[in-house]
């Protein structure tokens, strides 16, 4: 039994190989980029606009609102990274309804890559926001003793991100595969529907966690409310 689409290799030349994960990722990228291009080719700035533009505007402004809700005051700055994270994971998971499709997020390599991107992006945004010194200083807060724990937490959360998404997606695909052999027809359909919900939740969780980590690394967030003075 195949656990990951990485194992489905179409072409290989030494270290280089073209497996199902990469191919489906490219397909998703193509669909998303071309779709966006087609919709945004003729955008209307008036009050009348197309349904597709409406949909994309709802999605983009919704993501922006979510980022703002997490505590990042300048959501446009993080929209590219966090939005793409969410859209990619969501698209990859939603497409499981298509027959013979293997979600790239069902591969630990993809989720690890995404987690690595977050792992790199968090300190990057932190350094961009408050400088290298300021960012590194956050590791010894509140005391120097916390330094190893902070480093461990940084590493472990990256691992957790990768494994959480992989586990959920892989298990979803696995369950459907198993159920198809046991109870064909109806039950796998229900599980697929459930899998869609799980996929959306996972996409949301993944991007929200990334936003929270970035917010924690940057000071570009809403100031904590001042304690009320004693009267």
């Amino acid at each position: 039994m195949r656990l990951s689409p990485d194992e489905m290799i179409f072409w290989q030349h030494g270290f280089l190989k073209l497996n199902a994960t990469i191919v489906f990722t490219w397909a998703l990228m193509l669909v998303m980029a071309v779709g966006s291009k087609l919709v945004t080719r003729k955008l209307s700035t008036g009050l009348e606009h197309s349904h597709w533009q409406n949909l994309l505007e709802i999605i983009v402004s919704g993501i922006e609102k979510q980022i703002e809700d997490v505590g990042l005051r300048n959501p446009k700055k993080y929209l590219g990274f966090l939005g793409t994270l969410f859209l990619f994971v969501a698209m990859a998971n939603l497409c499981t309804v298509i027959p013979f499709y293997e979600p790239p997020t069902g591969s630990l390599s993809t989720t690890a890559a995404l987690a690595l991107c977050v792992f790199v992006a968090v300190p990057l945004f932190g350094i961009l926001d408050q400088g290298l010194g300021g960012y590194l200083k956050s590791y010894i807060e509140p005391t120097v003793i916390m330094l190893p724990f902070n480093i461990i937490s940084e590493l472990s959360r990256t691992l957790a991100l990768a494994v959480r998404l992989f586990g959920n997606m892989m298990s979803g695909v696995m369950i459907i595969g198993i159920l198809l052999t046991i109870t064909p027809l109806l039950f796998p359909i229900v599980m697929t529907a459930l899998g869609l919900l799980t996929g959306m939740v996972q996409a949301y969780i993944f991007s929200i966690l990334a936003a929270v980590y970035i917010a924690a690394a940057t000071r570009d967030r809403d100031p904590k409310p001042e304690p009320a003075p004693n009267t």
Binding site: D6, I22, S107, L108, L114
Partner: peptide, 13 residues
């Protein structure tokens, strides 16, 4: 489960 080439390619993707 992790193919490091795929990881790099996916990160680039």
């Amino acid at each position: 489960l992790i193919d490091w080439f795929t990881v790099g390619a996916q990160a680039l993707n």
